[in-house]
Amino acid sequence: MCCSAQLTEKDLAPQAMNPAYLDAIKGMRFFDPHIHMTSRTTDDYQAMADAGVVAIIEPAFWLGQPRTGVDTFRDYYSSLVGWERFRSSQFGIKHYCTIGLNSKEANNEKLSEQVMEILPLFLYKEGVVGIGEIGFDDQTALEEKYYRAQLQLAMDGGLPVQVHTPHRDKKQGTQRSMDIAIEMGLDPYMVIVDHNNEETVKEVLDRGFWAAFTIYPFTKMGNERMVEIVKQYGTARIMVNSAADWGISDPLAVPKTAALMLERGISKADVEQVTYRNAITAFAQSGQINEADFERTQDIDQSLKYNGSTILRGGQQPAPDKRSTIIR
């Protein structure tokens, strides 16, 4: 015998697919207003759908390395309203996006000028719920120039703005982002200030902006801290997102945080506010969010059968059994 331990039936049973937290949030619906699905796999989509995520917003962002030409920006924007939206719909998740020139790449002035020229082509597309994510990274003069230019586009089009706040010198960067928006005459209620923490939240809320929190391991918020924030500040104008991207991040951050909030005594109604309702209220100011569409995206028509095997229609993806060694 090779093995000293005795195998029992329990060891041989397939591992449970559903972690305990899924039970706590069963039947709840979630809206993740910041997630970069372009960088994620179909496994993530499936897990998100299973956890109750019904709709998401994918902000245009930095892809991890700088782009060298305007054509790759164009193709990226067009993939956000095209291919990625389709991919998402295959899992019953309604996909929206915000379009913008991110702060890092705003530092390439020659390219930024070209990008600014093509932005209006995308801002009025269906399902574009705002301008984003824009704001400061290093807080350079060029970043400010294109932040202002894009705030102007948002005002012209009556569109919400999704503001990225910097990792470094965060508090000051956040303040400056808000100062500029107010100076330019934007209604703070149209501006979602993202990646908040304990240090920035009070001022953001006091000044009438929306405060978004990114639950992202190691570098941004943890969800235990998020629970405390909601306990302290309530639910008005607060929303939670995952900002999951090409880094070590968690596309289930929103449902997991909801489960933790429930476990730690926050009411279901309050949890719903910060993980679903508030994000819809904020971004629906674009006129582009219709909750009835969430149901439609989920309406999976599997009626077409041939020779006993179901043929999936409307591009819906069949879900393979991930536990099985067999792949068919």
Binding site: R74, Y77, S78, V81, G82, R85, F86, I118, L121, F122, K125, E126, G127
Partner: peptide, 9 residues
């Protein structure tokens, strides 16, 4: 075509 979203396509 080159800048189209799904429904435009």
């Amino acid at each position: 075509f080159n800048t189209a979203e799904m429904n435009e396509l």
